[in-house]
């Protein structure tokens, strides 16, 4: 990795390796307010792109559009070259599991009336035809992976701390083996020490599964710690995308913390 200007390097990279996600001139208006103005960027496999902006800059709308939770007015979202916005219902249901999201507010991220185990089992029940025992052992594996203990399974979300809920969310979506995860301020509501735990966990999962992250945050320190590139968004349009030189490799970080 070398030679800024970053913009240029990004476009070079663009030609070299096939992109996992390509967003092309995404636009959206709410009545007269322009929320997104021709937003374009792309992500390679196993990369983390940070999206930095203040509240109201449109960064959450980008994340939700990529997850098909909001419909942009115009533009394209290519996943491995195919436009998500032009897919029919059946095609969408096939790519759905590969695109996942982590939300900002742990207190509303899990259904308050469902036990943690039901929330974690839900994607398995929807997408995989597993027997009861298989679901149980898969859940055990997931719990170990994200660092939750078996007693958490029996609890309701209000009995968990914010960090534990984010772990449960990760367990829930990792079971679908996603290729791409939008993390919308996943740690902004957490304490510093818990934030470090969750960010570490996300990086470890990326190291293990080669998932790609779009990491949305208003905290530059966090983005500098975890992202390969950082995009700066202001009033609905991307001002610049820069390489993040401060990020150290996962191996280096593990060595440091030991």
């Amino acid at each position: 990795m070398q030679a800024p200007p970053a913009q240029k390097q990004w476009s070079v990279a663009n030609q070299m390796s096939p992109q996992l996600i390509e967003v092309k001139s995404l636009s959206k208006d709410y009545s007269r307010l322009k929320v997104l103005q021709s937003v374009s960027f792309s992500l390679k496999e196993n990369e983390t792109l940070g999206l930095f902006g203040i509240s109201g800059s449109g960064k959450t709308t980008i994340g939700r559009s990529l997850m098909l939770l909001e419909k942009p007015d115009s533009g394209e979202i290519l996943f491995r070259g195919k436009d998500l916005l032009k897919m029919n219902k059946k095609e969408i249901s096939l790519v759905r599991p590969k695109l996942q999201m982590i939300f900002q507010h742990p207190e509303t991220s899990l259904n308050p009336k469902m036990k943690v185990q039901d929330s974690i089992a839900e994607p398995l029940i929807i997408h995989k035809n597993l027997s009861r025992e298989e679901i149980h052992s898969e859940m055990k594996r997931l719990m170990r992976l994200v660092g939750l203990r078996p007693e958490h399974l029996e609890r309701y979300p209000h009995q968990l701390s914010g960090g534990e809920i984010q772990r449960a969310i990760l367990a829930r979506i990792i079971s679908l083996e996603p290729k791409f995860i939008v993390a919308d301020e996943p740690t902004s509501m957490l304490d510093a020490s818990v934030q470090a735990q969750i960010l570490r966990l996300m990086m470890k999962l990326q190291n293990d599964t080669e998932v790609t992250y779009l990491f949305i945050s208003h905290d530059l320190d966090v983005l500098r710690a975890v992202c390969d590139r950082i995009a700066y968004i202001e009033a609905g349009s991307i001002k610049s995308i820069e390489m993040n030189e401060e990020k150290r490799s996962w191996a280096e970080q593990v060595r440091d913390s030991e």
């Binding site: 818990v194 470090a196 975890v226 970080q253």
Partner: peptide, 18 residues
């Protein structure tokens, strides 16, 4: 010490447990 080290700019070294 752990709290300060867990900040992103100080190395993001987590305090284990809760």
């Amino acid at each position: 010490r752990g709290l300060i080290k867990s900040l992103p700019k100080n190395g993001l070294i987590p305090l284990e447990g809760r």
